[in-house]
Amino acid sequence: MKTELTKSNEQTPARRAEEQRLAIRPRVDVFENEREYLVVADVPGVAKDAIDVRFEDGELRLEARRWTQANTDQPLSAEYHVADYRRAFAMPDGVDADKIEAELKSGVLEVHLPKSEAKRPRRIDIRAS
């Protein structure tokens, strides 16, 4: 009897672990003034180089990988998962994609999305005739 080993698609354990990393939606505040939109997200446990902020087709995507702590310790009590963060927002038209800036400070991510010139409110002077 011959046993055939069939190879399923490339699924190394490392890759599987990568795909199965748990991700949660970070809490956010969203603000707006006449110059910009501002998205503030809580991402505790993330270092600056582990954040990916993308703006594509009017959608803002936030992804952040958390640094993992050594998992050899025994949890006596666990109230949170050490999970990555992922969230997307549909932004209104008129965001100047080239001028988007992001800043991370003690686990809080701030993304500034400036409005393009054309979308900003303008003050119209009234001339006396």
Binding site: L22, I24, R25, Q74
Partner: peptide, 28 residues
Amino acid sequence: DGSWGVTRSTTQPLSTASWPRCNVLDAG
């Protein structure tokens, strides 16, 4: 949230009774 494969639990209202969330580990 099927579209992104993400759990939604973090966006539920905050309860001060359980904030901040803590993990306790026994490291020998």
